[in-house]
């Protein structure tokens, strides 16, 4: 709960930047790359923003199902 209130430490993307980069981040993530190096600040934002974290989880789930 404390983390939820205080949020991520360090630089993070905005919601708009998160949406812009989400597709690239997820593809790097799913092909075994380093998504946090590819999109710095995304991981912190996903920890801090529940709605963007939902969007990330949704895209991962859909691509996994598509590739299964």
């Amino acid at each position: 709960m404390i983390d939820r209130v205080l949020g991520p430490r360090g630089p993070e993307l905005t919601c708009e930047q998160c949406f812009e980069e989400l597709d690239r981040y997820v593809e790097v993530e799913m092909t075994g790359g380093d998504p946090d190096a590819a999109v710095p600040g995304m991981h912190a934002h996903l920890r801090g923003c529940p709605a963007c974290a939902d969007d990330h989880e949704s895209l991962v789930a859909l691509l996994r199902a598509e590739r299964a």
Partner: peptide, 19 residues
């Protein structure tokens, strides 16, 4: 072209569903 076109397109509809 930072991702496949379909991945790019999916994020729009998943956002709409989530909201």
């Amino acid at each position: 072209g930072a991702s496949r076109f379909t991945t790019w397109a999916y994020k729009f509809v998943l956002l709409e569903v989530g909201v």
